[in-house]
């Protein structure tokens, strides 16, 4: 959870209700190719029957990710919004979140019962993270193929995200990555924050990540009740 979520001083004094109600907004960040779109697709498949949900994509260049989600008929068109990030995927999720807020608000207006929105960032490096003005919680996705040193290298995505996902464990033997090292290093840099080692290839339902998302939805509902 963001450090400033509960401090009254940060709440806009001029607009009532910080952001009360509305869907849980979940950021999916991480380097290019780590499996963010695959995870978004898996979560839509698994959670789509439980929640009223939608996705915002931030491809750096094309509408590739939005098209993927459409093509696979995971979500109907009117539940996917793509935003342009002006060559700066990182700016669009952290420093100037305007375009993403517009997209989320558009989806909320179009689907008044919306319960869950995933915002997939354009792939960036390990320093990328979402502003908590845009999302309520964020998942950082890295993959085994990037080498088992990635968790040790740290960076805000790895250390401070609400959930770290280490994807493509099926590739570990092929790239000589030691999963125990990744697990141990993650725990060291993340303290109490959870890490999940998964393979979307082997578990296309992203079972454990979906369970974590359900817990976040429940937590937000309790907090707002």
């Amino acid at each position: 959870m963001p450090p400033d979520h509960d401090l009254d001083d940060y709440v806009d004094p001029y607009e009532h209700g910080h952001r009360h109600g509305g869907p849980l907004r979940v950021g999916l960040g991480g380097p290019v190719g780590s499996g963010k779109t695959a995870l978004a697709a898996a979560l839509c498949r698994t959670l789509g029957t439980e929640y009223d949900l939608a996705v915002v994509t931030n491809d750096i260049y094309t509408t590739e990710d939005a098209d993927f989600l459409r093509r696979n008929a995971i979500l109907p068109d009117d539940r996917i919004e793509a935003v342009q990030t002006g060559c700066c995927p990182h700016t669009a999720i952290r420093d100037d979140i305007t375009a993403n807020l517009d997209a989320v608000e558009l989806l909320e207006a179009r689907h008044p019962g919306l319960e869950l929105v995933f915002v997939e960032s354009g792939g960036d490096n390990l320093t990328a993270s979402f502003s908590y003005g845009l999302v309520d919680v964020q998942v950082f996705v890295v993959d085994v193929a990037g080498g088992d040193k990635v968790p040790r290298k740290g960076g805000p995505g790895v250390t401070a995200s609400d959930l770290l996902v280490v994807n493509k464990t099926d590739l570990a033997p092929l790239v000589g990555a030691d999963l125990d090292v990744m697990r141990r290093d993650s725990a060291t840099v993340r303290g109490e924050k959870p890490t999940l080692l998964i393979s979307l290839r082997e578990d296309p339902a992203a079972t454990e990540v979906a369970e974590w998302v359900r817990a976040q939805v429940r937590a937000r509902r309790l907090q707002q009740a």
Binding site: V83, T85, G86, C88, A92, D95, D96, T98, A99, D102
Partner: peptide
């Protein structure tokens, strides 16, 4: 240009 009003995504 750092005012977060969305201008960075317009050329």
């Amino acid at each position: 240009s750092r005012l977060p009003a969305g201008g960075h995504a317009h050329s």
